[in-house]
């Protein structure tokens, strides 16, 4: 199983490269994965998305869709694509320590 080490803490990843255990997540992990995904610095806008995704996942047990991020989370789709270019749903989920999104929309 793949793993990533951040600040001496080791995080196990699943076969898709997403965090294996959501409870392991911390902000340092998010920053490290963001860098790997080409986002050098996580801004307030990024954290807003990450925090919403994590709390929605905890509530519903499913990674929120882009539509849900807009309708329930109040995150405009344009902003989402600007914050997480080239694959926002997957990137944001990976940084947030959630599993790979399963839906088609």
């Amino acid at each position: 199983m793949a793993e990533v080490t951040v600040d001496a803490k080791t995080f196990a990843l699943d076969e898709d490269g997403f965090l294996a255990d959501q409870n392991d997540w911390n902000e340092e992990f998010a920053k490290a994965i963001a860098k790997e995904e080409g986002i050098d610095e996580l801004t307030e806008g990024h954290w807003n998305v990450i925090n919403y995704m994590r709390s929605d996942y905890a509530d519903k047990g499913a990674v929120p869709t882009i539509r849900r991020l807009k309708k329930a989370g109040g995150i405009p789709t344009k902003d989402l694509y600007a914050l997480f270019p080239d694959g926002p749903a997957k990137k944001a989920a990976r940084i947030s320590g959630l599993p790979k999104p399963k839906g088609c929309v």
Partner: peptide, 18 residues
């Protein structure tokens, strides 16, 4: 139920997505 938007909203979503 599957969170697939109506056509107008879907088109807006695609446009917003670039």
């Amino acid at each position: 139920k599957l969170d697939i938007p109506p056509v107008d909203e879907f088109l807006e979503m695609i446009s917003d997505a670039g």
